[in-house]
Design a protein around this nucleic acid. Structure first.
Lengths: 346, 346
DNA sequence: ATTAGCACTCTAGAGAGTTGAGTGCTAAGT
DNA sequence: ACTTAGCACTCAACTCTCTAGAGTGCTAAT
């Protein structure tokens, strides 16, 4: 039913539409591409493609624009075709160079992920999202208590998810350095290496094991730790390139404010990312109406996972209009996810 | 020359314009306010106000809109008038309650300032900026070195500006816990209480004082500390409420992307904030063309300082259209700056 | 000083006409 | 069975013109 040329025409339409953001006419295709047939023939092809739902006409006498279904076959074959893979690979090396140049210097997780998102946004010209690692079982690597003034103590929680979290608590009464150290050692011994999952209950029982005169302060410290453990469980993303969302103003007619709020609140983005599982290590695209975020109904999400010690822990994603530059953006997503994977095994 | 009623008319025009965002006509003023004169009289007043540059007409047969100069006298008398001060005070108590409810729970500086900006943005419905404290002479309160894996050490720098900074360095060779502790103690003793200003030179000489087998690792640690000290000097702001900038889309015709970039890059905002000194502890407004940020030419900045141990260390600000709600926003800025001042003395 | 009255100006919107890009279909050509 | 020239038809976008009405500025009277 659908011939090879039909498909080639579809591809031409999508490429031209991505380039110009204008409905593509049969005449334009004949001029820019070399099918060796007349515009009437292309029109016949287009009629067929429209019937199959790959393209649509905004109004009777206009050119055609791709539908989500059209983009879908385009992207699917894009990821298979070896020819395109080559082009991606070309970009990949260059991107890898650029990314690693900056990222290799950063060791702090917050900084690394925030910078990753910024790099990805810059490389693609779209908005970018990087999930924080979300290990199934995170365990405590170290707990430190640092006195930063007479009655304030900084709690430092290091987990094997590489998150380093801090929180300052106000003590009830002053505490000598030696006492602080001994409290630290006791807590540290109790928690190190343990999974964060069931730790909160263990903590409360811990308070009673201290001498009565310390219990007040230990309770404060313990509740601080509980707070950090809790924050550890919360999903978090780094986001960058908001300005790029505006580049496609027309797309988000009037709902720009809502759109920014969507990214601010994050949870919806997270949900979508998590509801689409990756097969193998391949990057994946969610196109237009395939996801359910209303504010992004004209947008696509491109994402790929990154791993730590061999298991996938989180995703990096690019968000842009359905008519984004898929090959370029796939390359960028891929480059970043590989880099983050490699690095986090160091 | 300018009578009391003239001024009252100006105020009416500004209030109505803020409320409706439409040019204000003489008839509308007669109807909404109770001047007890006819529209013709108001027209005479308006002609005078226009001559003096307080208002302007978009075109011959339209109502008037306030000029920057008009807003200026409006704001100036707003801050003096006791009657309005009362209204602000009413809001102040309520805002203080709301703000402190959230902020009192936060001890981490990053969290506190980011949350402050968010609260301010929410309370005002505008974009909000909170500067990080910028003490003239910051000194080191504590330095901690925490081993987080065999060859990685977390450096923790606590200064009396309340900034707590962290950085992870990769060691050249493994280091035992005892050795790390002794390195820590030596570095800590050397730096604690010292001003960060001239510290970098002192650091490099410090390396030589260690036994040769440690120098490699100490050098890595020291360069990590230098990095943190450097970051400490850098100006930083917390920003929130980008979405609110879009609410006034018309104002920023087309330059939305540039606008967001302005906030992203921060430096310009910082410059403007710092170039306007506060007299006493009063909040201040910069209206429209009084500042020089092109992207914000139709915007006003409202700001107030906050202090630590009695000296002003940074500013909080609201950025919105010149036709923002000044009383409400002044109240919010004031409430937040007072709260941040109070808290940072705890 | 204030005001009624009126001429004048200008915007915003509606309606009509025109243009041109682009399609869909038909009938002929290969 | 595919391709194509040709042509009628559609529709968005643009221009022109007209009108309504909101609002001013000025003048002369109070």
């Amino acid at each position: 039913m659908i011939s090879d040329r039909n498909m080639a025409v579809l591809q031409a339409i999508i490429e031209d539409f991505i380039a110009t953001n204008e409905p593509v006419s049969s005449k334009a295709i004949v001029e820019k591409h070399h099918f060796g047939v007349s515009s009437a023939t292309i029109r016949n092809d287009m009629a067929l493609l429209e019937e199959e739902g790959y393209i649509a006409a905004p109004h009777t006498s206009s050119g055609r624009i791709p539908t989500d279904k059209g983009y879908r076959v385009f992207v699917d074959q894009l990821l298979q075709a070896e020819a395109v893979a080559a082009e991606i690979k070309k970009n990949l090396a260059e991107l890898n160079r650029i990314f690693s140049k900056t990222l290799d210097q950063l060791t702090d997780l917050d900084e690394r992920l925030q910078t990753s998102a910024q790099l990805l946004a810059k490389a693609t010209g779209e908005a970018a999202v990087v999930q924080y690692p979300n290990l199934k079982s995170v365990s405590v690597t170290a707990i430190e208590l640092v006195s930063i003034s007479e009655n304030r103590v900084l709690i430092l929680l290091v987990t094997d998810s590489e998150r380093i979290q801090q929180h300052v608590v106000l003590l009830k009464k002053n505490l000598s350095a030696t006492n602080l150290t001994s409290i630290k050692q006791k807590i540290s011994k109790e928690l190190s290496g343990k999974s964060v999952e069931n730790l909160v209950e263990k903590l409360s029982s811990l308070v009673k094991s201290f001498a009565p005169e310390f219990r007040d302060n230990v309770a404060v410290i313990v509740s601080g730790i509980a707070l950090l453990l809790d924050a550890n469980k919360q999903d978090k993303i780094a986001f960058a390139g908001a300005a790029n969302l505006l580049r496609n103003e027309e797309q988000f007619s009037g709902s720009l404010a809502n759109l920014l709020k969507t990214f601010d609140e994050q949870s919806e983005i997270w949900q979508v990312l998590n509801s689409w599982q990756l097969e193998e290590a391949k990057p994946k695209a969610i196109i237009g109406s395939e996801h359910s975020i209303f504010e992004l109904s004209n947008s696509s999400l491109l994402f790929s996972g990154y791993s730590s010690q061999g298991t996938e822990v989180a995703k990096v994603a690019v968000v842009g209009p359905t008519r984004m530059n898929y090959p370029r953006n796939f390359a960028a997503v891929l480059a970043l996810s590989k880099l983050l994977s490699k690095e986090s095994e160091g």
